[in-house]
Simulated scan of single mutants.
Amino acid sequence: MDVYAANMDRCPVYASFFGAMGCACAIVFTVMGASYGTAKSSGAIFSSGIIRPDRLMQNTLCAIMAQILSIYGLVTSVIISGNLVEKMALHTAFLQLGAGLAVGLCGLAAGFSIGVVGDAGVRASTQQPRLYIGMVLILIFAEVLGLYGVIVSILMLTRSTLGVTDCPY
């Protein structure tokens, strides 16, 4: 096998597609999780606002925490897109795909969790205000799921170009 054929195996023309898919997965899945968390908890916020309008702003914490998940996806997408080039090693592209999927799917799961906890927590804390602190703690636990994904994705992205030689063509 000659050197050109070996480079074609290591740096195929379609490699950048996988990096672009990682970029897309990062933002799409985290935004889907954030939108679900916001929509699910916002229904409870407004229906509970009828009973206790004085607690409306306090209960918006759920929707705010859900939106933080989309920032995680945005950060990862910006990092991946900054490293996308036409000719890239397949190793780098697969790690970019993995990083995008890691943050995206963790953000999706965290968004679902925040939505369910926010819905139940806002309704419960409206009837019994002492439950608010418990709801906030559980929301933090749900948010950390998305933070785990962004940490793993950043670790994968920092390792994606280490020890990888550039494509010669």
Results as ranks from 00 to 15, higher is better:
19 G>L: 11
27 I>F: 07
37 G>E: 07
139 L>W: 01
57 M>K: 06
86 E>A: 08
156 M>Y: 04
4 Y>S: 12
41 S>R: 09
52 R>W: 10
44 A>Q: 07
119 D>V: 01
73 G>I: 01
30 T>W: 05
31 V>C: 06
32 M>R: 07
3 V>E: 13
140 I>A: 13
51 I>F: 09
74 L>P: 04
130 R>E: 12
102 A>V: 02
56 L>N: 05
5 A>D: 13
125 S>C: 01
99 A>D: 07
40 K>A: 14
66 A>F: 08
142 A>D: 09
76 T>G: 03
71 I>T: 14
53 P>C: 10
45 I>K: 06
53 P>L: 08
143 E>G: 07
37 G>S: 09
91 H>P: 00
15 A>M: 08
10 R>V: 14
125 S>Q: 10
14 Y>A: 12
67 Q>N: 13
10 R>I: 14
51 I>T: 13
18 F>W: 15
107 G>V: 02
156 M>L: 15
124 A>W: 00
109 A>V: 15
62 C>E: 01
109 A>I: 15
63 A>L: 12
162 L>F: 08
100 G>S: 10
65 M>R: 05
148 Y>T: 03
25 C>L: 15
85 V>F: 07
78 V>Q: 10
166 D>K: 14
97 L>P: 06
56 L>M: 15
139 L>T: 06
107 G>R: 01
162 L>G: 06
69 L>W: 06
87 K>P: 02
54 D>L: 08
7 N>I: 04
29 F>M: 05
5 A>T: 13
26 A>K: 07
116 V>T: 12
105 L>S: 14
157 L>S: 09
88 M>N: 03
28 V>I: 13
106 C>I: 04
4 Y>C: 05
46 F>D: 07
3 V>S: 09
18 F>C: 08
77 S>W: 02
90 L>H: 05
119 D>T: 05
